[in-house]
């Protein structure tokens, strides 16, 4: 694991060790804010920034921080970055900041960030920690946005509503709607919808993994003799 290439790091962050779909970390913001695609994207990007910066910083100081005090130091660093992100959002994306509300400061308690700091950044050099932070953050953002989009389409019949809050007036053209007559399923944008939606996303990921490993096994069987060993890890 420690000697794996950057490509492997990116693949782990986006897919095989995705923090939301495999590690199931950071579920509180994941479930709470993903009622629209833009909210999910906004929180995802904020988390991405914090995760990348904290991973990089912790990797730099990893040799000077004594193990006994590492967790408080990590939390301190993460909290500083979260505060910085919060203040920047207040300055430049005030409307989005108001919608996301308490969940921006709560990024500091997101287990993904402290988890990556402890499990990866405190043991790896700067470059790899930076890539790991980016990949994990991106994987988290993608899940948040996909879940947000799914819930928004089913619950409200729209997609990327309020995109202008984030990307300016240009993005207003992203807005899509299924029409005024569409009667949204309110449950999807309520908390149960988040749990059910995430459950279906995890099921879909497991299904794809299963198909891939089966296809790989079939290839292996075709090329060599049938091997009794199991395929890839879960």
């Amino acid at each position: 694991m420690a000697t794996s290439s950057y490509g492997r790091l990116i693949k782990e962050g986006l897919w095989s060790n995705n923090q939301a779909l495999v590690a199931l970390l950071g579920l509180c913001p994941l479930l709470a804010v993903t009622n629209t695609a833009v909210n999910g994207l906004g929180l995802g990007l904020a988390t991405l920034v914090v995760l990348t910066l904290s991973n990089a910083t912790i990797s730099i100081i990893r040799n000077w921080v004594r193990p006994e005090v590492r967790l408080p130091v990590f939390v301190l660093i993460i909290a500083s970055f979260v505060t910085a992100v919060e203040l920047s959002m207040m300055a430049w994306f005030y409307e989005l900041y108001r919608i996301l509300g308490i969940f921006i400061p709560l990024i500091v308690t997101n287990c993904t960030i402290i988890g990556r700091a402890e499990a990866f950044a405190s043991k790896n050099p700067l470059g790899r920690s930076l890539v790991d932070g980016l990949a994990m953050g991106l994987g988290f953002t993608l899940v948040l946005t996909a879940l947000g989009a799914m819930r928004e389409i089913i619950g409200l019949g729209t997609l990327f509503s309020q995109a202008d809050l984030m990307f300016g007036e240009v993005a207003a053209g992203l807005y899509m709607s299924l029409g005024e007559d569409f009667k949204g399923m309110l449950l999807a944008i309520l908390p149960p919808g988040a749990f059910i939606g995430l459950g279906f996303m995890i099921a879909l990921k497991n299904l794809i993994d299963k198909q891939l490993s089966r296809a790989r096994k079939a290839v292996a069987v075709a090329t060599t003799h049938p091997a009794p060993a199991a395929g890839g890890t879960a």
Partner: peptide
């Protein structure tokens, strides 16, 4: 309940 919550 799904319908009651979604389509009151």
């Amino acid at each position: 309940v799904l319908l009651l919550i979604s389509y009151p």
